[in-house]
């Protein structure tokens, strides 16, 4: 089933330099800031324990600014309390970022700030300098790949039918902060226009791989790419090129217009915050067939019949399904929610 109401877990990896985080057990809402921090410039190494004559393990006892604390230039970081005091002061304004095993310290200037927002309504289940994980219940739709930063907004339709292409002319600034549902294809033009108009994210059956590379760089792969906040967010539900959405996937999206939603890029999921009884969304969807030339995918008829071993134009012989448009290799037909990554 493509749509599932479940208790999901969303991991939010943090960059270096977290200064505040939501505590474990804390209740958060999608869009809430769950971590904030700073980005660092070139750090300066400062003699610590050896300068004030204490063992490295004892440095913490005499520190006046904890690791992670912000300092001004000449702020005393550590000091021994003897009559002839010895002190470590900061040579620059910034943060004390790290204590080395030998007792020296690194102080780095602050060159920027960042925040990370929750993509789920729920409870923080892990919180440390590497990651904040939130668990909560929501309707969710699993895609094949997502690109850009996590996004938060309200569901809005950009197409009339699930086979339509998202046209740039349908996008304007009234769609700011919305998660825009495209149909079979979100073109590169519609993605860039949506981003320029402040649209939170574009969700469609497919997006052009070439366009994604233009936006996200040549390193972008079919697995998706998580980026900084300056890039648009795109979620491909089925594949790349053109892929009409099955009715069972599109109809709930129509019902959920104006519902709060998020795109969690790392897991390529669309979370929609609506009650479990909001509708009969959890229906099985037809299987998907990859086109013979791999240029796109399409939903299949509900009842497939086997055509037996078939020889295709490439001379590959394989088991096939019979369809109105000719035989389709069984291997090229997958359930909507089938795993798309190979087993290790």
């Amino acid at each position: 089933m493509p749509w599932r109401y479940w208790r999901w877990s969303a991991e939010h990896p943090l960059p270096l330099g977290a200064s505040e985080r939501a505590a474990e057990g804390q209740e958060v809402h999608a869009g809430d800031v769950i971590a904030a921090g700073t980005t660092y410039g070139t750090p300066v190494r400062v003699a610590g324990a050896r300068r004030i004559g204490v063992a490295p393990d004892d440095l913490g006892r005499v520190m006046r600014v904890p690791i992670g604390g912000e300092v001004e230039r000449r702020t005393i970081i550590a000091r021994t309390g003897r009559r002839f005091a010895r002190a470590v002061s900061s040579p620059i304004a910034g943060r004390v970022i790290h204590q080395r095993a030998d007792g020296d310290l690194y102080v780095a200037p602050i060159v920027g700030r960042w925040v990370v927002r929750s993509t789920l309504d729920g409870e923080v289940t892990r919180s440390d300098d590497a990651c904040v994980t939130v668990e909560g219940s929501a309707w969710a739709l699993q895609g094949v790949a997502a690109y850009g930063p996590d996004a938060v907004g309200e569901i809005a339709l950009g197409v009339e039918t699930p086979v339509d292409e998202l046209q740039p002319s349908r996008i304007d600034v009234r769609m700011r902060d919305r998660i825009l549902i495209g149909g079979a294809r979100a073109t590169a033009e519609s993605i860039t226009r949506a981003h320029a108009c402040g649209v939170a994210a574009v969700v469609a059956g497919a997006a052009p791989a070439g366009g994604l590379r233009v936006v996200y760089g040549d390193d972008a792969t079919a697995s998706g790419a998580t980026t900084g906040t300056e890039a648009p967010t795109v979620l491909c539900l089925i594949g790349f090129g053109t892929a009409p959405l099955p009715r069972e996937v599109f109809a709930p999206l129509v019902s959920l217009v104006h519902a709060r939603a998020t795109v969690h890029t790392a897991s390529a999921r669309l979370f929609v915050f609506a009650p479990e009884n909001a509708g009969d969304f959890a229906q099985s969807a037809p299987s998907l067939a990859l086109s013979d030339d791999w240029l796109g995918a399409r939903p299949m008829d509900e009842h497939l019949s086997l055509a037996g071993m078939t020889r295709f134009a490439s001379e590959v012989e394989a088991e096939a399904f019979a369809t109105d448009e000719g035989p389709v290799p069984v291997a090229n037909v997958l359930a909507f929610d089938a795993p798309r990554t190979p087993r290790s």
């Binding site: 094949v144 790949a145 791989a209 792969t221 079919a222 697995s223 594949g239 790349f240 090129g241 990859l290 013979d292 030339d293 791999w294 240029l295 796109g296 995918a297 295709f312 134009a313 490439s314 590959v316 394989a318 389709v328 290799p329 291997a331 090229n332 997958l334 795993p339 798309r340 990554t341 190979p342």
Partner: peptide, 13 residues
Amino acid sequence: FNRARWPDAIPAS
């Protein structure tokens, strides 16, 4: 990209 996300797909064309 489609091939990369379609395990064991067969080249029919």
